[in-house]
Structures are given as C-alpha cells and as structure tokens.
Amino acid sequence: MQSPARSWREIPQRYRLEAAKCARCGFICFPPRLICPECGAREFGPHKLAESGKVLTYTVIRVAPQPFCDQSPYAVGIAELDDGVRLTAQIVDCDPAALKVGMRVRIEFRKVSEEGEAGVIYYGYKLVPE
C-alpha cells in the first residue's frame, strides 16, 4: 500500500503525465530523472506524454493481490505512446479476451486504488480502448 505522501509526490506524473526530455539527446524520461540514462546529461526540458498509443504487450491477472481482487480478471500492459514512450498501466473498460497486441488505446483518468472505505483515494492514469 502506498502512503498519502508518496502518492502526493507522484501527482505530476499520475495526473498530468509530466515527463522530462533530455536537452542533449532528446531521450524522454518518465518519471523524470536527474541524469539522462542514455547520454549522462543533466539538463532536461518539460514534456507531456502523448495521450494515445498502441498495446505492445499485456498480461491478464486472474489471481490478484488483495486490494484488486474485485477487479480480476484484469489486464496490465505496456503501451507505446505516439511520442515513442512506453508506459505500463492497467488496461480497463475492455474484456481481457478481446485485447490484442497493436490495439489502439488512450489514457484516461481513473481511480487507481483506495485505502478501504475511509481512507485516501488514489487517482492516476489507465489505458482504455480508443
């Protein structure tokens, strides 16, 4: 389980998909890093991830960890967004049996998890069929 503070720190990425683009080689880091893993540069500019892409690969979770039991079976996949960034996320509003590699998806704002009935609700991005 995450803490409210950790989730709060990740708001720019979870809510707004804010990434960092290396000023020297153009590599996009999501989440942002201090040093570019490609060229070692330390200068970055802002970059907002593309909102659509295609499914590169996915897996279907049938035996889920406790907080996600009610959602099984559900899909988690990696999408290649239209700006080339690869993003791991849950793929929802889609029958897992109908998922296909190469399928077009877009990002939607969803509830990711919550601390029971009384705790904090964590929001973020998920993928849905386009």
Binding site: V92, E108, R110, K111, V112, I121, Y123
Partner: peptide, 16 residues
C-alpha cells in the same frame, strides 16, 4: 460508471 470511475474522474475527462 466502471468501478474505477467517480465524480472526480469523469469531471477530469469532461474538463479535458
């Protein structure tokens, strides 16, 4: 709504 949707998530999508 899907189980992961509420007033906030739909507000965000409509506002976008």
């Amino acid at each position: 709504p899907s189980p992961d949707q509420d007033t906030i998530t739909m507000s965000v999508e409509s506002a976008r």
